[in-house]
Design a binder for these strands. Structure first.
Lengths: 285, 285
DNA sequence: GCAAATTGCTGCAACTACGCAGGCTAAAGC
DNA sequence: GCTTTAGCCTGCGTAGTTGCAGCAATTTGC
């Protein structure tokens, strides 16, 4: 039997398409990845990659083995989840992924209570825009604005938030509505409901700043750049912003807590889930 | 992510139920198995075994993880098969498992032809009574007297053999039929069709030797111990045996060649399969 | 009833696999 | 067109893993 660890390295390489990327992912030296792949090739007596000057390319056989390795990876993730679910009591590390601003404003302020209540639980709070994979165990619990459709994942609505228009009081006092300028998300995100709503509202008035980052939008609005559409949780605590009353209300967006089916019953995960529900209880838009 | 190799060791241990047995199976020191299991426990932060004075017992969590590990093992075997199937050309090791006497009398004599025809193929011919697992890749091709029912296995009838009664000419010349003594398989195998037939034929006459081993039966018959029911292939080449004409013929037994679905198309495996078909072509009972 | 075999533990020495540093080449950026 | 970046290779010293030997306890076999 070949070395399973070699196959894990190879499976990672096959996903990442380069030794260096795989090495980064595995937190080892790329030389090690190369050596492990070579070892697997020799154990299986099969050429898995073509060594070209600047790149490792999978052979047809490599593709086949990688596909099987990927299935094995899925089983390995299941082992990881089973291990967490089997943890006795309220100890261990639980990771939560949430949009950065949400992590900062709605979750982080309450973390003291969690630590006090469950000292054995070590939380990893990941504020990231990227949608982390629950299936690949990049995170245990995810807070998202869209309901996921993947199999084996269960979603629970834990709140909703409304997006309103904000600007600094100073900006509003010196600018008349027909001269309003707007702050929006990057073009690549312009199909979000809030963005469509903002575009319609702005009409012919200019969008003077586009950014991926919600936090940047808030800071820009405070700095008097223009008017931003911010979710309630991002603007509520900010004294330097004033809300505009708009005629037609923006629709509320649901907030979902997503978790893998296998982890539902793990005590420590349950505790963090309950904690998150508490965090979002006040946030009803 | 935990070390997959640790899980492989643990999965083997879970199947073998002892460190030493697992170590033998894995061809490593038992200390290594113990250390690997400990490493897995620490990576998963989960007690997998209870260390009792003279035995390692799986915990409930250990059972769960072992079950998942076993599924991962199945994937690993699939990787091994894919690797063999992906071999270009007629090279590599192919293992064949067959009943010992059959391996000796029907297969081994023709091996020269196989070596001549396919010098790149290294054959591992395993004559064993135990039914080797094709699913666990203990062997690539199996020759069996019973058609297997496992999923993913394909069986092909490559011949049939009849069992007849034999004794030494000397024994027959000095013994009258009502005083015949018989040689049979061990009691644990007495439900085989041939054994039921032999018992009925012997009637009240005594069975003076019982053994698991067909070869022993043949030698005993030659030595004049009594009358043995031997398959044609075991007795045909033996000048020291004389066949008894019995009124009702014993039914023929089918000979099956069994192989895993994934390996059917591997060139070297195909070659050995064709070779085996040739070996058995003459053996029509 | 005693010897032999089996099972698991521990410490040490040897070996293997790893990270690191230095080197090379090709593509991307200014 | 030159620099920077990214990817892969190789050699060396080290650190971690492994096998071995010695040990204790229990079961098996004669």
């Amino acid at each position: 039997m070949f070395d399973w660890e070699d196959l894990r390295y190879f499976a990672t390489f096959a996903r990442e398409k380069s030794l260096s990327a795989a090495a980064r992912h595995l937190k080892v030296d790329h030389a090690t990845v190369a050596r492990r792949i070579a070892a697997l090739e020799s154990a299986l007596n099969l050429k898995l990659v073509d060594r070209r000057p600047r790149s490792y390319d999978l052979t047809a056989n490599g593709e086949r083995i990688a596909a099987l390795g990927s299935k094995m990876e899925d089983e390995a993730f299941a082992v990881g989840r089973a291990a967490m679910a089997g943890q006795m009591g309220l100890t261990g590390e639980v990771s939560v992924s949430a949009p950065p601003t949400m992590a900062r404003t709605l979750i982080a302020p309450h973390l003291g209570r969690l630590r006090q209540q469950f000292p054995g639980i070590h939380l990893r709070l990941i504020g990231e825009t990227r949608v982390a994979s629950l299936l690949h165990r990049e995170t245990d619990i995810a807070v998202r604005m869209v309901r996921p459709t993947e199999e084996h994942l269960v979603a629970r609505k834990i709140g909703e938030t409304t997006t309103c228009l904000y600007a600094s009081p100073a900006y509003l006092s010196i600018t008349s509505p027909e001269n309003y300028e707007f702050i929006a998300f990057d073009k690549s995100l312009e199909n979000l409901p809030q963005e469509l709503w903002l575009k319609k509202y702005a009409d012919s008035r200019p969008i003077v700043l586009r950014t991926y980052d919600l936090e940047t939008q808030r800071i820009a609005a405070v700095a008097g750049v223009g008017i931003a559409a911010l979710p309630h949780y991002a603007a509520a605590q900010e004294p330097g912003l004033q809300r505009l009353e708009s005629e037609d209300a923006m629709p509320a967006t649901d907030i979902w807590m997503v978790i893998h089916h296998d982890l539902r019953q793990a005590p420590s995960v349950r505790a963090v889930m309950d904690f998150l529900v508490e965090c979002f209880k006040d946030e009803q838009g």
